[in-house]
Design a binder for these strands. Structure first.
Lengths: 205, 205, 205, 205
DNA sequence: AATGAATGAGAGTTCATTCAT
DNA sequence: TATGAATGAACTCTCATTCAT
């Protein structure tokens, strides 16, 4: 009988198990990974994994949640802050790309493998993902209202584009540890700001 | 006549097999798809697949090649043409996104699953992929020389960003057949042109 | 509808098919050989083999028969001749070992694989094999009567021993084409003659 | 205590698995046996076999080793002993034929199926087999030096002949459990001693 | 808290065989 | 006379999962 709340030690080990699963899933994909792979990465035996997860699928669910909880949480803070549009966009990109390096690629797993979860287990993820996108859309709407953005900008498109661009670079960053992340962050922000912003300098001259 | 038509039939069926594999791999991933899935999609029995592929892996290899051969070929033509930078970028985005709908999602498979191929089978793919990226970089370099782009633009980053953005939208397009692809093409082009271009209007004033 | 008696050309090709099957079975064993292996060895396509054999099993049956028909026939002649015991034994060993090289190892296949035939198909082989052994036993009995052999010799054992020894060397000869077969024949005969013969010289001295 | 007994249990079961594989391979040949056959013979389910062997091939390797380890070991003792040639030859034949009945026909499997092992897995077997043959040759050389053997005897041939003769009778013994093994042992020894020995009685007279 | 042992389902693959052409 | 295409059964092997200890 497992303790629902769990001892402290148990919770700690379970967290490690999630990180191991994240690392393995990120490398081999969900269907390409075996429970033995995960157990080995964690340093225990295959059967013992079931002390922490009821199934491999549950492990994937936990990894996905682990992968976006921080990511979503940070967005919440960014959206709620009273910075200007440009600062918020910069913060978003920075947060997004940083997440790729911080949690054993769990964010990559969320992106690539979450569709293998059964509908039931995807509800919460979907909700969190939508929330993220909507808050990002909100930031763009704020940018439009403040006149920083061109009137022709489609905020839904813009939000998706930010997410897509960051995920694309996230993948590259994960695969190549030598890449200068901050350089990428700056260039992405630059591209997006210029890509969507009103051309103020025109007026100034 | 017999051998020719026989051989032709074989080639034709093999093509269909590749398309089936593309569709199945795109939906379930390489490791999540079974050869039975592919055979059923094609309307033959599992064992008969092996008349067309030596292994499931070979099928993946063929799908990946199928997915990018056109894509690379079109880029070659675009790069070689004597259009202006803006036209070339527009053509690139159009070609890239169109490919997602045209070849049973084989391009998506190339993007998501090619890493599961053993090194030996990836050589040609790598070469083609690099060629694509380099030619796209070349287009950006041409854009810089002609003064259309801001001097601060990093052409390597720019090429990767174009590819990443298109792939992100390609994924969305593939999953949702109701999306207006031409709307997306136009908005992506818009974002990229504005994001990287010199602000000409300044000069006009 | 195949011609039971078969055209000349058909019979000729069928003979080639048996030789091919013999060669392949000898190398890889019955269960380790595929019909494709045999067809390739013969230079035709897999399905075409069935023009010559109703089944792989029939092929094995034919190879086994092919492997011993000559072998048994020669023994018949040896046994029926009016040579002395020593000459007959020499002829037997010579015939036995020569067979290994002459018919694409079909004799080896008979020895190693005939047990994989179903009982029905083994009847004739059994009969031929028994006949061979009995005639060889007869030769030994003749040797005993003529006083050439020690009275303690067990003719059944002796016949089996000759066969066993020859088969053992046959295997070695087949695997190593550089071996001097006539050297082996002489040494085997020597061993057997001395091993079973009465020690006449004792009396002479 | 737990680990030790656990490990011991595992080793014990693995041994049983090897014996089962030996029995099945001996009856049907390597390619004619299925892993299900072996598992059933052992009383477990097919997949569970892989808890003891990484592959069917490994099982064959282990069976072959099991089949000759004792056989080689006994020869080592015989060769190292200071018995006379005749005693050593008798001991060799006795040991050889006894092995056929003792280890679930694993020696038969070694003889008939070892060639289906890949080169890598055959190294140790080759070495042990050569060692056996060389030690047997050594015994014959000793016999020559002591003058017991005729000067014309080829020790290499003699060793191979002993092995071949014993294997031939071993096969027969294995297939027919009613055969009086000791009768065969005696007759083989008799044949070989007379076949190679100098005719001492000549001197006595 | 963890493990060794087993299992059953399913995977990829091979192959003897068939048959229209 | 021979072939291309297909099939279905069997095979080896993997794996998520269970459970007594």
């Amino acid at each position: 009988m497992k303790q629902e709340s769990g001892s402290h030690r148990y919770q700690e080990q379970r967290r490690q198990a999630i990180r191991s699963a994240a690392a393995v899933f990120a490398e081999k994909g969900f269907h390409g990974s075996s429970t033995r792979d995960i157990a080995e990465h964690l340093g225990i035996k295959q059967g013992s994994l079931y002390y922490y997860f009821k199934s491999k699928e549950e492990a994937l669910g936990e990894v996905c949640l682990f992968g976006i909880e921080d990511y979503v949480h940070r967005m919440q803070e960014i959206a709620a802050s009273d910075q200007a549009f440009e600062a918020k966009l910069t913060a978003t990109v920075t947060s997004h790309l940083s997440c790729y390096r911080e949690r054993n690629e769990a964010l990559k797993v969320y992106n690539d493998e979450r569709l293998y979860l059964p509908a039931g287990r995807r509800i919460k993820l979907k909700q969190l993902g939508s929330q993220y996108r909507q808050q990002l859309e909100g930031i763009f709407e704020q940018g439009m209202e403040s006149g920083v953005l061109r009137p022709s900008v489609d905020c839904h498109f813009a939000a998706q584009a930010v997410i897509g661009l960051c995920n694309a670079w996230g993948d590259i960053i994960v695969r190549d540890p030598d890449i200068n992340m901050f350089d990428i962050i700056q260039k992405c922000t630059d591209l997006l700001l210029n890509g969507f912003a009103e051309r103020r300098k025109v007026r100034r001259t």
